[in-house]
């Protein structure tokens, strides 16, 4: 089957998954035990207030109608009105989405090549001091929550030795790239987390490839070692590593929520946490959906790269 048809199928599949995701988001918000109106107004709200809110938000309509109205609005770009700011959600979300995308993109651009290099080096020098150090470092950075790494970095770089800002607070509407120093620590936290895990995955699949019969065959062809590693082993080790980048994208997004909150960075993640604190259900719903879409698209991209790299997957 041709590559483009395969990609087309994946895109179609993603569309279906997204429909299911929107249903699930809607279901969690509206059907799970726990009442939206109570969640917004708190336990102490009077029945009259609750009823008023329900009718204002259309919560008294049948579920099906509510879902269709909601998803219809979402598709037209109308993400509802924020209860906390009393403003339309869409423009706020869009600006923050851009900010988060900048952060995530920088993290990936830095961490993926570094992780691949480290993984390959660790695999080629398996068992060396460097390899063991990387493995240990990986366990630590993998096992530590982002906020722990982040707080330690803030403690060191903005309190003990104040060289970098410990907060990325910025004016609304501003481009985060305009204050690059404020980006350093958030990116560092996420990169460290990614680097560790991804380099270990690369290492594992690289070791696998290096031990394979085809790499042995390439060596016994008399090809130079560097050529064998890059052309024969890495080529095969790359596909699983890239697939892992896709799987890991969820952690990046989860990490964004924590890191953005920690550094007061105006991204989608912080918006989500804020809407939780403000009990701003429409914003929460919209944010979750946007994050899920981003996740789906990220996975799709990783999938396509894997397909390109591995001819076996294409048949």
């Amino acid at each position: 089957m041709s590559l483009s048809r395969l990609i087309l199928r994946r895109v179609a599949l993603l569309a279906l998954v997204l429909v299911a995701v929107s249903l699930l988001t809607f279901a969690i918000v509206n059907i799970l035990p726990g009442d939206v109106a109570t969640a917004i107004l708190g336990e102490s709200a009077t029945p009259a207030d609750l009823a008023a809110l329900r009718s204002r938000m259309g919560l008294d309509l049948p579920l099906g109608t509510r879902y269709l109205t909601w998803i219809g609005h979402m598709l037209r770009g109308d993400f509802g009105t924020s209860l906390a700011f009393n403003l339309p959600v869409a423009p706020i979300l869009l600006w923050r989405l851009g900010n988060s995308a900048i952060l995530a993109a920088l993290v990936l651009i830095i961490s993926v090549p570094c992780a691949l290099t480290l993984g390959v080096v660790a695999a080629v020098y398996e068992g060396s001091l460097l390899d063991r150090f990387l493995s240990l470092a990986a366990v630590f950075t993998f096992a530590l929550p982002e906020f722990v790494i982040g707080l330690v970095l803030i403690l060191v770089f903005s309190i003990l030795y104040p060289v970098l800002p410990g907060s990325s607070l910025m004016e609304p509407g501003l481009n985060p790239l305009s204050q690059p120093l404020a980006l350093v620590l958030p990116i560092l936290v996420l990169v460290l987390h990614q680097l560790a895990h991804l380099s270990q995955i690369t290492r594992a699949s690289m070791i696998n490839a290096l031990g394979s019969n085809y790499v042995r065959a390439a060596r016994l062809k008399g090809l130079p070692p560097a050529l064998v590693v890059v052309k024969h082993a890495l080529r095969n080790a790359l596909a699983p590593a890239i697939a892992e980048v896709g799987m890991n994208f969820g952690y990046v997004l989860g990490g964004l929520v924590v890191v953005e909150t920690l550094f007061s960075y105006a991204g989608v993640g912080q918006l989500m946490v804020m809407s939780v604190e403000n009990r701003d259900v429409p914003t929460l719903e919209a944010t979750v959906l946007v994050i899920a879409v981003a996740y789906g698209v990220g996975n799709l991209l990783a999938d396509i790269v894997s397909l390109r790299l591995n001819p076996r997957l294409r048949s």
């Binding site: 998954v17 997204l18 299911a20 995701v21 699930l24 988001t25 969690i28 918000v29 799970l32 726990g34 939206v36 969640a39 994208f249 969820g250 952690y251 997004l253 989860g254 929520v257 924590v258 989500m272 939780v276 929460l284 979750v288 994050i291 899920a292 996740y295 789906g296 996975n299």
Partner: peptide
């Protein structure tokens, strides 16, 4: 198709 933390958050909040 939800990042782990996001789904957990959503469920606990609701």
């Amino acid at each position: 198709s939800f990042p782990a933390l996001i789904l957990a958050m959503l469920i606990v909040v609701m």
